[in-house]
Design a protein around this nucleic acid. Structure first.
Lengths: 216, 216
DNA sequence: CGGCTATGGATATTTTTTTATCAATACTGC
DNA sequence: GCAGTATTGATAAAAAAATATCCATAGCCG
């Protein structure tokens, strides 16, 4: 299993990237840590460490070149070459993902969708054609797609993952509420939407408790 | 600022909860760590630590009582009392969230939606009425809602957050691609969808590099 | 030119998280 | 009832991440 370090940093990088792209559009060429920190609501030291982990280097007393930062982050995330993906499960979440136009900025292009619903097959959703799931492995292989996005209900997710692996994908982005089993040469990233809600709940409870005890 | 520990553990708790609820439905009363570990594709030690952090205690040589575990996790996450929320921004993501029926299991009930689009206002989406955003603060306060879910484009998110705070919310679940500024007595949990993609990209690149170097 | 301030980079420290070890408990089978 | 095995819980160690400190560099202003 390959070791990847500094997960929290990696998660923050897309946000920097988004801000930096906006800055470049506005013609800003140099940016210093404190400004990014204010934008991110983080400590400056965190930002500096995050940026350093991409290998980029700034100018002491000045800051970083925006263009260099963008390149460094994109290179670090391998987002400098757009990779193509298929999406399986064109329900409400799948459709929402198909409709999100920001992924191009993040080096991802969703080429096609798959579903079992005859009402959806053959139609297009957000300009992507919907194919039957029965052709998933075949078409994925033929199109040489190496990433799959799973948006099907939990009980079908493992089967879809198996098909994707058979179709030759290297990575799976899993939005289904289940942990998947795949070969060692395939990477799965699971998004647990309820995980964020759990964190929010705990923080909320902790803060409420604190505020209540203060007022006593 | 309140300190919350073991974020990764908290993120995993909903997944245990889901599995445990299934088990209880099947009539299973006792569960041991190794089984949960297999299901989660985690090490057993991780599971044991996760469960311990909720304060529950098992029986050495036997395992944990499923019902006790469920109660402990729900209590730890304050999901034993359903809390009500409003959702702002009934676009594709907002609609997808409104359509997800699993939140009740997680102690969350979305009461109403808000949007600026006249075509949506007054209609219902997944059984929730859509109100104009202009009434957000007023209605939130009147309904005594303490949680807001933001699904609007990044540029409007701060304004919506301000309205929610004015309406008296304690917690904000933010799906917009921007970091929000709120008073100290309000908690924000931001979901950065691209963060997961970034992690996947880095892992993928690392694994590919490893596999390539092996084959040389 | 010289001092002042802002900034990045390197190093060190502290905290948090993960992982390992080991003793105690309870079930199983004989 | 006893030995063997599975399991939890407590403690300890290792790894990772966050945070702090200090120094060197660059621009600014008089």
């Amino acid at each position: 299993m390959s070791k990847v370090q500094k997960l929290p940093t990696i998660r923050r990088l897309p946000t920097y990237l988004h801000k930096l792209n906006e800055m470049r559009k506005s013609g800003i060429e140099i940016v210093a840590t404190p400004e990014l920190a204010r934008y991110m609501h983080l400590e400056a030291i965190v930002v500096r460490k995050d940026l350093a982990s991409t290998g980029v280097t700034g100018q002491p007393g000045v800051g970083y070149k925006v263009a260099e930062l963008i390149d460094a982050i994109r290179a670090f995330l391998s987002w400098d070459n757009t990779s193509e993906a298929v999406l399986v499960g064109a329900g409400s979440l799948g459709s929402a993902i198909l409709g999100y136009e920001g992924f191009e900025e993040y080096g991802l292009r969703i080429i096609a969708a798959f579903d079992t619903d005859p009402a959806k097959i053959g139609r297009t959703i957000h300009d992507r054609e919907v194919f039957p799931v029965s052709r998933l492995a075949e078409l994925t292989r033929r199109m040489r797609i190496h990433m799959g996005i799973i948006c099907v209900p939990a009980e079908y997710a493992q089967k879809v993952a198996d098909e994707l692996v058979e179709g030759g994908v290297w990575g799976i982005w899993n939005f289904a509420n289940v942990s998947l089993k795949v070969p060692d040469n395939v990477v799965v990233q699971r998004e647990v939407i309820a995980g964020g809600l759990a964190v929010l709940s705990v923080k909320l409870t902790a803060l409420r408790r604190e505020l209540n005890s203060e007022s006593e």
